[in-house]
Design a protein around this nucleic acid. Structure first.
Lengths: 212, 212
DNA sequence: CGCAAAATTGAACCCAATCAATGTTCGTGG
DNA sequence: CCACGAACATTGATTGGGTTCAATTTTGCG
């Protein structure tokens, strides 16, 4: 998009810091701002009759509640920070105005919406087509290759949070880890070690159509 | 969008009929056409290691695999007709070209993508926050007020299909119906009767943030 | 060092899937 | 028009993955 347009958006926007576990938006409210995670982790979740479920975890740099801003309807989900975070807040009206003014911006928005859509489809497939242990196994594989430290991971947050990431209770996560011991996964405190990657891989069966 | 542009898209498109249970697209393939359901029901589903799950059910008139066309990446899900259907096939390249040519079209696409995104969020919430019986109860309520026939529904398709709609097996659906008998739901063959709507409502607890 | 939160472990339970058997419906061909 | 077979539907028994509740143990931090 044009630099002038970008600047005008940024001028209207605010960059704000939040501590962890702060609720940023609540389902049912109307969108005032488009949110962009600049730093930290944000969890999208939803509640109904005292039940709660994680819908997505957002990492930098991505937008969230873009769809609500685009349609100007109430949020379908709530968001909270999982870690301390920096969030860029862009006034919703400014975004909608820009849509009609800048075709490149509109195209970027299409791309972003499409990506987010595909992301949620992956999340859904991960949840519905895999057991808890399989989700953990795939999470280990993905995370351990991000860090490039071939054989181990050190958690940056606690296991409760990881469990909610993976759509399960802390108890289930704990049992999943002990199950994965059969495939060479050991975990001492916050350190997770992988001794037999190929065994883990064959159990996890990562799939580009789920894991990207 | 402009009529001329619309015509040019339509000229490139084809309207085709399909019998039921025909696989229209397969996950992992590249998008050749944007699909639009004009008539009938289409199920989006996905497979992994011999497991299969329904991701969404599309009814007229909506597009599907729009996100794959927008990003020009492989499909993340497959699609099959649940009933005989008429599908409009618009060449993917024509859609992408039109994006850059017609700003109104781009805006319409944003709107559609956002709607589809919100649709899948609702589906996900319905699945994760409700039990099977609750999903059935809410489906009954929604469907019975569509028809305006206050106290009864007549199924237009078989219960296997309904079960897949609702993300459960035919056996579970059957048990859910007998469970709902406690709330005044009787079902004889393809006819479902509701004798105590308020009891059903209090069990179902419909929610605008899930059911729309 | 000591306490509170987090993590693990065990037991009971619940929802839903699966397997298996039987009953019902529906479409078709005689 | 009826009879028959195949698909659909229901019911029961069993299983399994996962949650919940409760009791310890471990961890991390003041």
């Amino acid at each position: 998009m044009s630099e002038a347009h970008f600047d005008s958006l940024m001028k209207a926007a605010l960059l704000q810091r939040f501590p962890k576990q702060v609720v940023l938006i609540e389902e049912g409210h109307r969108p005032d701002f488009l949110h962009v995670v600049v730093e930290g982790l944000v969890e999208l979740f939803s509640q109904h009759r005292s039940r709660e479920t994680t819908i997505d975890i957002i990492r930098p740099v991505t937008t969230f509640i873009l769809a609500a801003v685009a349609t100007d309807e109430v949020y379908l989900k709530s968001a909270r920070t999982l870690t301390p975070a920096r969030i860029l807040l862009v006034p919703a009206q400014a975004v909608r105005d820009m849509l009609t003014r800048d075709p490149d911006f509109a195209r970027a928005m299409i791309h972003e919406l499409a990506l987010r859509y595909r992301g949620i489809v992956r999340t859904l497939k991960n949840e519905k087509l895999r057991s808890g242990s399989e989700r953990v196994a795939n999470w280990i594989i993905r995370t351990s290759q991000d860090g490039e430290k071939s054989g181990s991971i050190v958690l940056t947050y606690d296991k409760r949070t990881l469990a909610s990431h993976l759509g399960m209770t802390p108890e289930s996560l704990s049992r999943a880890f002990s199950h994965l011991a059969d495939y060479g996964v050991r975990c001492h405190g916050r350190k997770i070690e992988i001794s037999d990657r190929s065994a883990l891989l064959s159990f996890a069966a990562p799939d580009p159509l789920i894991d990207g």
